[in-house]
C-alpha cells in the first residue's frame, strides 16, 4: 500500500511538472497578452512530433532534443507573427474561433505529414532502466529525469521572472499592459518573446514525454483541457499559481484514479465501489476546480477576476 502510494505520488509529480511546462506558457499568454490560445495543446503535440522526426533522422534522442528547441522557436515566432499578433486587439470570442481553427489545421496537417499511426521515440540509453527506491520498489530513471528537468526549468523561470529585467517586464505586463506600453516598452516585441517562450516550453514538454508515450494526433487535446484547469486554479498570469496548480491537479488526477476506488470500497460493496470509482475518477479534477473557484473565483494566486 505504501509502495503503491509512493509510486503514484512520483507519477503524479512527473505529470505535474509536465503540466507546469505547458501551463507556464499558457498562463503568461493569457495574463500578459490577454489572448485565449486553444492551440497551445497543439504545440505540445508538435514538440513530440519534432523530436520523433529529429531523433529518427539523427539516431539520437539528444540530437533530437537539441534540434527540436530551435525548431520550436521558429514555430512559436511564425505562429505569433502570422496569426496570434492579429488577435491581440480582438475579443475573446474571435481569439477562441481563430485558435480553434488553428487546432483543426494543425491536427490535420500533422496527420498529412506524419500519418495517423502513432510514432515511438527511443529512450536515451543512459536514462533507461530503473533505480531501486525503497524495498522492492523500482522506479524508471527516465521519469525521474523528467521530474528533475521540469523542476530545473521551473527554477530557471523563477530566476528569470523574479530577478531579471525581462522578468520584471513580464510581471509588469501581467499587471498593467497599458502602463508598461506607456513607459516606452516595445510591447509588440515583449508579446512575441512571451508567446515564443510559451511555445518552446510546451514543445519541450511534448518532447520530454515522447519516449514514454506514443506520439499521436490526440495527445494535445487531453493535455490542453487539464492545462486550462491548471491555469484557472492557479490564477491567470501567475507562474507560481501554474506550478502549484499543476502539481495539485496532477496529484489529484493520479492518486484519485488509484485510491478513489480503494477508499470507496470502505463504504460501498466492491462492485459498486469499482463502478463509482471509475466514474468519479476522471471528474475529480473538475470537482477540485469547482471547489477552488467557489472559494476564490480568481484562482489561488490570481490577482485579477
Amino acid at each position: 500500500m505504501t509502495n503503491l502510494f509512493v509510486l503514484q505520488l512520483l507519477n503524479g509529480v512527473q505529470l505535474g511538472v509536465l503540466l507546469f511546462l505547458i501551463a507556464a506558457g499558457l498562463t503568461l499568454v493569457f495574463g500578459i497578452m490577454d489572448v485565449v490560445n486553444l492551440a497551445h495543446g497543439v504545440l505540445y503535440m508538435v514538440g513530440a512530433y519534432l523530436i520523433a522526426t529529429f531523433a529518427a533522422a539523427t539516431g539520437s534522442f539528444w540530437w533530437g532534443l537539441a534540434l527540436m528547441l530551435p525548431a520550436a522557436v521558429v514555430v512559436g515566432l511564425v505562429l505569433e507573427w502570422v496569426v496570434i499578433r492579429r488577435l491581440y486587439a480582438r475579443s475573446h470570442l474571435d481569439q477562441v474561433l481563430a485558435t480553434f481553427g488553428l487546432v483543426m489545421i494543425a491536427s490535420e496537417a500533422v496527420k498529412i505529414i506524419w500519418g495517423v499511426s502513432p510514432l515511438a521515440v527511443p529512450m536515451p540509453e543512459i536514462l533507461s532502466g530503473s533505480v531501486p527506491l525503497m524495498g522492492p520498489l523500482q522506479y524508471p530513471v527516465y521519469r525521474i529525469a523528467i521530474i528533475v528537468a521540469g523542476l530545473a526549468v521551473a527554477a530557471g523561470l523563477y530566476v528569470v521572472i523574479n530577478h531579471t529585467r525581462i522578468g520584471m517586464l513580464l510581471r509588469a505586463g501581467a499587471t498593467d499592459r497599458m502602463m508598461v506600453s506607456a513607459l516606452g516598452v516595445d510591447i509588440g516585441r515583449l508579446f512575441a518573446v512571451v508567446f515564443t517562450l510559451g511555445a518552446v516550453l510546451a514543445c519541450l514538454a511534448g518532447a520530454l514525454v515522447a519516449p514514454i508515450l506514443s506520439v499521436d494526433t490526440g495527445m494535445g487535446e487531453s493535455v490542453l483541457i487539464l492545462t486550462f484547469v491548471v491555469v484557472v486554479i492557479g490564477g491567470i498570469g501567475s507562474i507560481k499559481g501554474a506550478f502549484f496548480g499543476a502539481i495539485l491537479v496532477a496529484l489529484v488526477d493520479t492518486l484519485g484514479g488509484v485510491f478513489g476506488p480503494i477508499l470507496l470500497r470502505e463504504v460501498l460493496d466492491p462492485a459498486a465501489a469499482g463502478q463509482a470509482g471509475r466514474m468519479l475518477a476522471p471528474m475529480l479534477v473538475y470537482i477540485l476546480m469547482a471547489l477552488i473557484l467557489f472559494a476564490k473565483p480568481a484562482g489561488m494566486f490570481g490577482g485579477r477576476g
Binding site: 483541457i225 484547469v229 484557472v232 466514474m279 471528474m283 470537482i287 473557484l293 473565483p297 477576476g305
Partner: peptide, 24 residues
Amino acid sequence: RTRGVYFIMITLAFGQMAFFFFIS
C-alpha cells in the same frame, strides 16, 4: 462567479467533465 477568459475555460472544463462521465 467569473468572467472573460475564466468563464470560457471553466465552461469548457465542465463540458469535459460531462464528457468523461459518459466515457466511463
